[in-house]
Structures are given as C-alpha cells and as structure tokens.
Nucleic acid binder design. Structure first.
Lengths: 221, 221, 221, 221
DNA sequence: AATGAATGAGCCTTCATTCAT
DNA sequence: AATGAATGAAGGCTCATTCAT
C-alpha cells in the first residue's frame, strides 16, 4: 500500500529504524497498526520494501543521466559524484542501509543486496569498458576498485552521516575520480604540465559535447 | 579491573554488544553485577574501555613491527596487510567498532575516536614521507587516500564481517597496495621535446572550448 | 480500564506507592504488565488517575450532602467533619496524596492539584457567603483560613496517618469548627452561658429541619 | 564527627534525603564512605542527627528571643513569625522533616519527635498562660490550636516548599496571629440582665427539639 | 580508627506482533 | 480488508551497607 510506504519512508528518515514506531507509521498512513501486517511481514520487511523502492528510483535516475555522459573519466566521475550526492541528500536512509540492512546476517538473501549490486554494476562496467578500450591496464582487481570507491566515499562521509558538519560533493568527487583514474590508467606519463592542461581542455570539450547532446535530447522530447 | 575487561571482551566477542548481558560478564569475572558499575559508568562505557585497550595493543604492535620495515611501498603494504589481518582475526570486535561505536552521534567525543586517529596516522605519515621524498606526487588529498584504503578494506570485507565466507589477507593486501601506490606515484617518464608543441595545441583547444561555452550561454539565457 | 484502576487502588492502599508493584496490579486486574502502559503513561500516571477518580467521588458526595445542610456554622462544620471522615476512612490514600503527589515539583501541573482546589473551594465559598451575609467579619484572609482548617486537620491527624492510635472525628470537628467560627464571627458577645446554650439548641433544631428536608426529598424520589 | 555533620547537612540541603549520596557526604567530609558508619548507624541516623542539631539551634534561639517579648499577643505572633522565618530560610530541611522524618512509622520513637514537641511547647505555654490570666477563654482545645497554627503555616507554605514562588513572612504572621487570637480571646461584653429571660427561652427550645427528635425516631424505625 | 572494595536484590518499561471480531 | 486490544519477555542499573585489612 502506497500510503504505508510513504509514511514509513518519512518516519524512517526522521527517526531511523530502531526509533521508528510502527504505531506512528500506521497513524501517518491513516490505518491501524494491524493493517501493516496485511501488506508487510514485519517492520524489517517494511524497511526493506522502502529501501528497495528508493534504490529503484536511484538506479533509473542513474541510467537516464549516464546515457548522456561519455568518456571513461567523465562516466567514472559521474558515478562517484552521484553517489556522494545521494549521501548528501539522504544521509538517514544511507545510514539505515549501512547499519541496519548491510550488517544483517541475512543481507545477502535480501532484495536490497541484489539492487545494490546493480547500483554498483555501472561502475564496474565503466571500468571494464576502460580496460577493453586500452585506457585502463589489464589485470585490474575490479571488485577491489569498486570497494575503494564506495568504501572510500563511505569512510569519508561518516562524520556527515553521524550528523556532524558537511562535505563538498564536487570537491571529493574530483579528487576521488582523479585518484581512481590514476590507479587504473595504463600509463602515468600524463603528468607533465602540458599533458595535464591538455587533459583538462579535452574534458571541458567532452562536457560541452555532453551538454549539447542533452540539449538536443530535450528539444526532441 | 582486569578480570572484568577480559570477561567483557570475551562476551562481546561471542555475543556482540546488544546481546551481551551484564549479568554474564559479571559472572565470568567472578563478581556480582553491581561491581561492574564501580569501574564503568555503564555497559557502553565498558565496551568503550574494552575497545580502547584493544586499540592500544594494536597500536603498540604496529609500531614494533613498522620499525623493522623500510621503503614506502613496503610500509604502505604492511599497514594494509596488518589492518586486513586484524579484521580477519577479530571480525566481531571490528563489527562492534563499526556498528556500535562509530555510528554513535557522540563518537567524536569518544576516546576510541582519538585512538582510531592514531591508528590511521601511521598510514598518513608514510604517505607524507613519500611525498616529501619525491616518491609520491605533491598535492595529494591524503585524508581521502586514507579513506580509500580503510574504507576500501572495510567494504571489501563486509561479507566476512557478516559471517560469510573468507578472504585472502595477502591477496587483497597486494592488490590494494599496488593500486594505491599507482594512484600516488609520480610518473616515471621524463619530459620529451615534443611537449612544447603540445602546449600550443592545448591552448588552441581551450580557446575553442571558451567559444563553445559562450555560445551555449547566449542561447540558453 | 476500570479493572486496572480498581486493582491499582487496592494495591496502592495496601502497599503505598513505592512498594506497590506494577506486576501485582496487573495480576489482580487479570492482565499482563504491558497492558497497564496502553492506558497509563507510567506507574505515577496510574496513581494520578486513581487519586483523580477518588477526588471525583468525594466532590460529588460533598455536593449531594452539602445541598441539604443550611446555616454557615453547620455547613462549615460539615466540611470539616467530612474531611476528617475521609482521613479516618482512607488514611493510606491520604498519605499518598500528601507525600507522593503534593510534594512533587510538578504537582501544580497535575490534575489532582485542580481537583483539590475544587475540593476546598466549597469551604471558601461558605466563608465568603458568611462574609456576604454579615455573619463573618469583612477583610478576612480567606485562603489562610482554608489553610488553618485543612492544615490543622492534617497536622492533628498525622499520628493516625502514620498508623498510630485513633482520633474522634466528631470531637475534632466540633472543636475545630467552633474555633474557626469564633475566629471569623463578627462579634464575640455570644459567649455567655445562656447564649452558648441558645446556640446549641438552635443548631439542633436546624439539623432536625435539615433531616426533615432530606426525608421529604427521599420520599419524593 | 563535626565534619561529617556539616557535610551531611550541606548535601541534604542541596539534594534532599533520597538524592543525597553517602559517597558525596563522605567525600566532602574528607573521609571514605565506611567511616560514616563508625559514627552513625546508617544514612537515616545521620539525617536524624543533623536535624536534631538544627532543632537544638532553633530552640536555643527561640528562648533567647522570647525572653525579651512580653504580652500574650506579641509572644504568640513571635512564635508564628519565627516558624515562618524558619521555613523561609530552610525550605529543604523543612521538607526533610515533613516528608522523610514525620511520615516514618518510627517517628514517635525518634529524638526529633521529642524536640519538635519542645519546639511547639512554647506556643502551648503561651496559650496556657493566656488562659490562666483570663485573656483567653477556658476550655480551649489547646493541642488543636497548636495544630491550626503549625498545620496552617505548613499548608500555606507548601507551594514554597515545593520550590514555587515566595510568601510574605510578616504578612502571614500578622493575619494568622490575629485570627488565632480572635479564636481564643474571651468576649469583651459583660453579662446583661436580660440574659435570664434568654435562659428560659433556651430551655423551651430544647424541649421542642427533644420532642421532634423523638417523633422522627419513631417514624423511621 | 580508618579504609575501600565488594555486595546484591529487584522492577519499571517498551513495542512489534497477533488474532478474534 | 480492517480493526485495535492485548500480549509478554527481558535486562540495565542503583547505592547504602559491610567487613577484612
């Protein structure tokens, strides 16, 4: 039931999982507590369904945006930037996933586990494509790279997830994307001042080209 | 009191924080429950003290071992390998830190926060030394590198922390150390004469980009 | 829930507040402990509700009886006599109010505070009416008179409230009513033996008239 | 031990009895907890001794001041004013006596009970002297007067004892002393000749009342 | 006289879940 | 489909007092 999902999402966002009361969720949805159990096996199942829906929204959004971005470096940066944005916008839901779902022994049997796989799959595909095109070295431990990205972001944003201070989505995205790119790139010769400047110019042009693509898409819809 | 710390550590390792009973801790230490509260403010304080002691042991061990290891790459790999080893040997205590301590809003005021800083400080110093010696590039976002290392490890070992399967300490240590090294190392190539021509090309590209940017801005406003 | 209120009242009367166990209250009401907390915020709230109900009973009883009693002196004596009777019949509940409720810093925000106001309001109105009719002096500090009455009664019955000995409701009522009347009456000439005897006779006749009134009321219902 | 008494009095005044910790009392006295029990049977005994000492100070002070005050009315007012002053200056200690000592079933066996007797004895003696000198009526229920005074004051100052607002020592002393005086004073008027006729009328009324009483009894049985 | 470490019993409260209506 | 009243298990914490040294 949509009203229950909406109510649950709101309450979970305000209170977190443990402090969210089924009674409050029911009240906000305009039903009695017992009704929850007609649609959801238990409170945890309700959380699972809420997070599932959230992931579905995110994945769909990723695909739309990613379709307009070209170049391994840009796409990689986008994935990082987008994930940082999610954390920045929904810290409480992120905490729920990290603490209440991922830590559960049954997490792997969970639908959210699968959706998270999908969620990070784009990053892996970008890296694989980079390897295939020769832009990245062969023999890279790709899952480990994925963990460096997502784990690095998670680690870096824990204070924010805890409710302390803030962080710069763009700044972190730039620095992290650069570092990951360097770790994977086939040669490291690029670091003369001229090559660095060339890289920047090329990236600018690519971004402009992306924007032109998007503009075209928008005008045709 | 040592007996209480030992007992608490054992019970926390077996049951986790929430499922650890103060009554069981007291019983194993051979005292009554009330005695716990002469030495510790509450159950959480007991956890804090246990983790503190554990960190102290680890930090001391690190320093002893690190003194014998030379070379940036070796030292970096050691830090990674050692952390992986800790997770491999004490997954439950690691979970406690990750889930029960780090997520707490008061974590920053905690002694464990400070010890964790110390714990990762070695890694930061190694990187700084690498930069100072010219082995690593200048201008590296060192805290972010730290987060890639520890967050990457954490992310990679979550299944194990959850109690699923196993992981290869040495394999991960090698792959991760290599990746981090590449991300930080200066380029091996020297500057070539043709680079001056590159500079000219770059400047031309930048001018094109500027023109395109201006054109877009005009049409969208 | 009525059963819980009944059970709670009984247990509070037997054990006092601190020694009353929620488990026993629940058991006597034939429900489980948790059920208490569906109807009452906590143990103290339960006490509050029990005392509230008791006050409501008393106030209603007062009004019924007071309607049949005429004459300032008689009405004043009735209020005193009735309060003494309450203490005589329910010493433990009175102790609860005096020690556990009235001493609480939040007492003033309590519903019982308001009901106690109502409870003593009758006395104040009787005195006010006495002043209005010229029977009592003008300029009397009425709240202080109320405190002399209720405080005097309380002070006088503390040994009984403590469980020691007994006291004569009628004797104290007579003596106290007389003293209060004297303190308030407009002239004190009445104290010749003849006037004293006259007063007694008149009061007897008034009481008989009251009884006749009541009898008539009863026979018409 | 004086240091313990001083420390205990301070802590009791700050925290009240229940919230006063023996550990804090010991600490302030510069001894360890166990030492308390060398001088006092238990925490309650410590409270008793502290209150005893306080009463002794007060009684001595009373006697000094009372020696200089003459006239029944003045002496009575002084007793009232002095008691109000005590409450005004030491509300917490007063609460301790009222709630923690007086309510105790063993209060009567307590030394404080006796001292409180002494404390109020002065008031009783003043009234007795008033009766002996003919200033007050004979046949007064003196203990009840004492209760009206001390109970009235207590009732009137409960809000203050609870920590709410303030009260005027002098204003209340005046009003209460006046009221008590009126309640006790003999009538000012002398007997008049017509009173003998009144006697006859009274006797006739009594006879009517007797007949009515009998009639009622007959019809209801 | 003083220490100070150890005692130890006991109860209020929570809230997801159920199931007869 | 919805109600909503009832369930019921479980555990951290306190602090005055003791007693061997």
């Amino acid at each position: 039931m949509a009203a229950l999902m909406t109510a649950a999402r709101a309450v979970f966002k305000e209170k977190g999982y443990a402090d969210a009361l089924t009674s409050e969720i029911a009240e906000r949805a305009g039903v009695v507590e017992g009704t929850i159990y007609r649609y959801f096996a238990n409170k945890r199942d309700l959380l699972l369904k809420v997070v599932e829906q959230w992931y579905a929204e995110m994945i769909s959004d990723y695909d739309q945006q990613l379709a307009r971005i070209h170049g391994t470096r840009n796409r990689l940066r986008f994935m990082i930037w987008r994930h940082l944005t999610v954390i920045h916008q929904e810290p409480v839901l992120c905490r729920l996933v990290l603490l209440d779902l991922r830590a559960d022994p049954a997490y792997r049997e969970t639908s959210v586990f699968g959706m998270n796989r999908q969620y990070t799959l784009r990053t892996i595909e970008i890296i694989e494509a980079g390897v295939a095109s020769g832009e990245f070295r062969p023999g890279i431990a790709i899952p480990l790279v994925r963990d460096m990205i997502y784990g690095g972001i998670e680690h870096h944003t824990w204070a924010y997830l805890r409710g302390e201070g803030d962080f710069s989505v763009d700044g972190i995205a730039d620095a992290l994307a650069d570092m990951i790119y360097r770790a994977l790139a086939v040669s490291q010769e690029a670091e003369t001042p001229e090559m660095s400047a060339l890289g920047k110019a090329v990236r600018r042009l690519e971004q402009i080209a992306d924007r032109l693509d998007s503009a075209q898409l928008d005008s045709t819809n």
